[in-house]
Amino acid sequence: MTATTMRVGQRANLFADRNFKWLVIAPSIIVLLVVGIYPLVYTGIVSFQQITMMEEDTSWAGFMNYAALFSDGRLWESFGHTFLILAIALPIELVLGLLMAQLFLEKLPGKQVFIALLIIPTVISPIVAGSTWRLMFDNQYGPVNQIIGWFAGEPTAILWITRPEWVYPAILICEVWQWTPFMFLILLAALSNVDRSLIEAAEIDGASFWKIFFRITLPVIRPVMVIAILIRALDLFRIFDIIWAMTKGGPGSITETISIYTYIRAFKEFETSYAGAIAFLVIILLSVIVIFALKRVEIAR
């Protein structure tokens, strides 16, 4: 009833409303700039200098560090190791996850309990996961060799962690164990969201199970699957914890990934500028993938 008595300061209020959106997002942006952009800029600058543990030589080195990257065999091996793990683990996780999701898609007694328990590996610390499997793979006191021994009919003593030919299977088993439930849970949700009437219509048309799966189910869940793959691919690209817990990159440098190698150059050998160059290379590689990936995620929303 008091419209004529417009209060002083209401214009100020509306002004606040109009700027409100920037006001509330500002703190987050500032934090992200400090922790997100500053290190990138710093890394970029450092990578053109010659800082090592011995001397803080900030003189301009041009592309010296970047040129050195190309002749650094250990770097390219670490890239190779990373992509090897990615290329083997990701498809296995995807297929296993999909099969498990199919298994749990329909009614099953205690389904929710199963799902709750199956997700456990994914949420525990990767350091704990790596440690657990190191326990499991211990050549003398671990159960893995014992179980293989039962099937082989004779005691086995495979040196999982220390033999070059066995260390990758060990790492991959741990990785697949920890992250297959992730794929499983996401794909199960995606499959459950597939409109039943689509499948029923195809059944009435006489399509077989596999036809329905490849022609209808898979295309429908594809967007979600792509996102799950992207999330996992980005995780695998920077894989560090599991391997650190299991092998620290060893034996030798045979399980060094990009992250582990960068860490060693920066914090064990204190070759700051060189590590900076590696980091920058990684960022360039990643930003291409990340931007592509995020557009997908954003579109899928």
Partner: peptide
């Protein structure tokens, strides 16, 4: 308010994708 449009949202989440090892030295 769709503040900053789609690009700001994407920039924010892209910060999550950077491997820790890449930024940890300056930090």
């Amino acid at each position: 308010f769709k503040t900053g449009g789609q690009n700001l949202a994407i920039w924010i989440i892209s910060q999550r994708m950077i491997p820790p090892i890449v930024i940890v030295f300056p930090v």
